[in-house]
Computed example of a mutant assay.
Amino acid sequence: MTFTTRAYVEEVDREAVLALRRVCTTPENVVDYPSLTDLHEFLNPVRREQHTHIRLWEDSKGRLLAYANVALPSSSFSFLIHPMAWETSIPAEIIAYATAVRAASGADGEERELGTNCRDSDEQRLCYLLQAGFELEEGEVPVMVRTLADEIPEPEPPVGYKLRHIVGEEEVEACVALHRAAFGTQNMTVEQRLSIMREPDYDPRGDLVIEAPDGALVSYCICLVHPEENAQSGRNWGYTDPIGVHPDYQRRGLGKAVLLGGLRYLKARDVDTASFMTSSDNAAMLGLGTAAGFHRFYAYHWLSKRG
């Protein structure tokens, strides 16, 4: 098989990458990163500045065989490989490309690790990464699930606090500020939040916030249902993440209230199972989920590569 590699072209390659994800999809890997939903968000033109390090591999007829991206400055690495391309040199070329991008980004002398994740049952991907020099990190990202067959209690935010869905894109800056405060990070941007709000399955009624008496947004939960992914997996799932609470307003029951609001929204959408993911060291989120009836279903591991 002969193939060529080139950079991603805005407004030209997006649909081909989405089609490649569909070809690569199995019932088990539907939500593995990058999922169809992840790509709808990430490839939105509003985030074009993050597309610099996307690389594509095509056969002699121009059919897309592989996709890779290195997100900087984190050096997190994602990829898709067409099932018929695993036995070619493309998998090795993808690793070489990602390693080169990572190395070039460390021109300031700071050593950066190339990182990616892997579902705990994906033996092909895990073997590929380990053979390429990646090492498993401690901890995991558990996928938590609970049935929605039972009655969901009415949310009870504190007196004076209001549970509602966001009004629209005019609240995007407030949503970004809340996310950054809740998670202690600058990673969320206006462009990233807009890409979530412009994803095909996004429903503003599931984009929940709790408003404090002074009008500030202090807790949130983004709830989504993805019909195409559910059809691919044979499941009927909805998602309640991320969930965040501003640090100045924690321990007031706001996380529980917004989560219950999300569960009631998903149940009204006729979803039978709710799910969220979090880090294994996020004791607060795991505790909140367990108290709300969630349990671990499977997990993702993080792998990193130096040099």
Rank of each mutant, 00 (worst) to 15 (best):
D203G: 08
V225N: 02
Y220A: 01
Y239P: 00
H226I: 07
N230C: 03
V209D: 00
D201C: 08
I222Q: 04
Y202C: 07
A216M: 04
P227M: 04
I210G: 00
D203A: 10
D248F: 12
P213H: 13
P242F: 06
E228I: 14
P227N: 04
P247G: 10
E228P: 10
E229M: 10
V245G: 02
P200H: 08
A216N: 13
N230L: 09
L208R: 00
P242H: 06
L224Y: 07
I222P: 04
Y220R: 13
T240I: 12
C221G: 02
N230V: 03
I222Y: 03
E199Y: 06
D203E: 13
G215S: 07
C223L: 09
S219N: 07
P247R: 09
N236Y: 10
E211I: 03
G206M: 03
S219Y: 03
Q232K: 15
E211D: 14
S219P: 09
V245N: 00
T240K: 04
D248Q: 13
I243E: 01
N230F: 14
E228Y: 15
Y202N: 08
S233R: 11
R205A: 14
I210V: 13
V209S: 00
P227D: 12
G234N: 13
Y239W: 14
P227Q: 10
L208Q: 00
C221D: 02
I222G: 03
Y202K: 01
P213W: 11
D201N: 12
P227A: 04
D203V: 06
Q232A: 08
R235I: 06
G215F: 11
G215E: 03
Q232E: 12
A231S: 12
C221S: 10
E211A: 04
G244H: 04
N236S: 15
S233H: 03
D214P: 08
C221T: 01
S219M: 06
G215C: 11
D248T: 10
V245H: 01
A216P: 12
G244D: 02
P247V: 11
W237G: 00
G215Y: 04
G238T: 08
Y202G: 01
G234T: 09
I243H: 03
P227C: 11
D241I: 13
L217H: 03
I243G: 00
D248I: 15
T240F: 02
D214R: 07
A231E: 07
T240A: 08
S219G: 08
Y202R: 04
P213M: 05
D203C: 03
R235H: 11
P204K: 08
H226M: 05
D201A: 14
V209L: 06
D207V: 05
R235V: 14
D214G: 09
L208V: 05
Y239L: 14
D201W: 11
